[in-house]
């Protein structure tokens, strides 16, 4: 149970990022930029919380930080119709460089405090009244707030895609922009908005790392989690709960690693660190290509004729 509880906790940043990526991919734009969106969110979130002392402001800043990278991706990949993959990758590098640069400038200004320029007390765990004290299952329900947010996000996103008019249009933009256009929507604008909204959610995923798990920021602290989230989204067949399950699995791989390390089991730490990536690759190999992939993903759509 402890292991499962920590798998959920560790899987949270992946989950929020995957949900953000889901918005972008269902609208037809590959979400390779998740890593950068998370990183920007992690930095901006910590900065906001540290500067104002309010976690809420921090979360808002995290969304803005992720959103900035989202705007970058939306402009280049959707508006200029450049290759989604390379655009996302470049946006990641911009985020890596920008957060690194800002961190260094902050620590220069703050004098000799060095890398520990910003800090924050990690958000405390919380459980719905009563549930936390259940026998056996109890520890599962004692989770930090952003974890609850991620689970709520799964439910909300599932409902949004199926039951809201905007969700329907968003899916149409990812499946067939021509059909969306014929139905009176502007697929390009839908995609742009979906990318930016998704980036804001992914920014929250980054904030989980800096505000909820660590309490500080280090250069490149996402360490490939954005790419794992991308894999989770694919393994989860572009559905929120599928992605959640995949995140739980990757989180579980990392939780196992920590548990074994703590227990002093003599397994090579590098081998253990490899497990989430190997797990992601293995699952991708096992599930193979999918028919659920949005049909028009990554394909730019020219609706110049109407403008």
């Amino acid at each position: 149970m402890d292991l499962l509880a920590s798998a959920i906790r560790i899987g949270t940043p992946l989950l929020l990022a995957a949900l953000g990526g889901l918005l972008s991919e269902r609208a037809g734009v590959f979400a390779v930029g998740l890593e950068g969106m998370m990183l920007a969110g992690a930095f901006a979130g910590l900065f906001g919380a540290w500067a104002t002392g309010s976690a809420a402001v921090g979360l808002l800043c995290a969304m803005l930080g992720g959103g900035v990278i989202g705007v970058l991706v939306a402009v280049v990949a959707v508006r200029s119709r450049a290759d989604n993959m390379v655009t996302g990758l470049s946006a990641n590098i911009v985020a890596l460089g920008a957060t690194g640069m800002l961190l260094r400038l902050l620590s220069q200004r703050g004098g000799a405090s060095g890398g520990e320029a910003m800090h924050w007390v990690p958000l405390a765990a919380w459980s719905p009244p009563g549930l936390g004290r259940l026998p056996v299952l109890g520890p599962l329900f004692v989770q930090p707030p952003l974890t609850w947010l991620g689970l709520g996000g799964c439910v909300a996103l599932t409902w949004f895609l199926r039951h809201s008019a905007i969700g329907l249009t968003l899916r149409a933009a990812g499946e067939s922009p021509a059909a969306a256009l014929a139905a009176g929507a502007d697929p390009r604008r839908v995609r742009e908005r979906a990318v930016v909204a998704g980036a804001m959610v992914a920014g929250l995923g980054g904030a989980v790392l800096s505000l909820q798990q660590v309490g500080s920021f280090t250069e490149g602290m996402t360490g490939g989690r954005g790419y794992l989230a991308l894999a989770a989204l694919i393994v989860g067949r572009w559905t929120p709960f599928g992605a959640a399950l995949a995140c739980l699995m990757f989180g579980g791989a990392e939780a196992l690693e920590l548990h074994l390390e703590a227990a002093g089991v003599g397994i090579n730490p590098y081998l253990l660190q490899m497990t989430p990536y190997l797990a992601a690759l293995t699952v991708l190999v096992l599930v193979g290509p999918s028919a659920q992939m949005p049909a028009a993903i990554g394909r730019s759509y020219a609706n110049d004729e109407t403008r």
Binding site: L72, V76, A82, V94, G97, M101, S300
Partner: peptide, 17 residues
Amino acid sequence: TVLEGLTVLYVLAATSR
């Protein structure tokens, strides 16, 4: 690093269809 990333984005936008 920032400059490299942004430059690639500029070039991508410039050479896209």
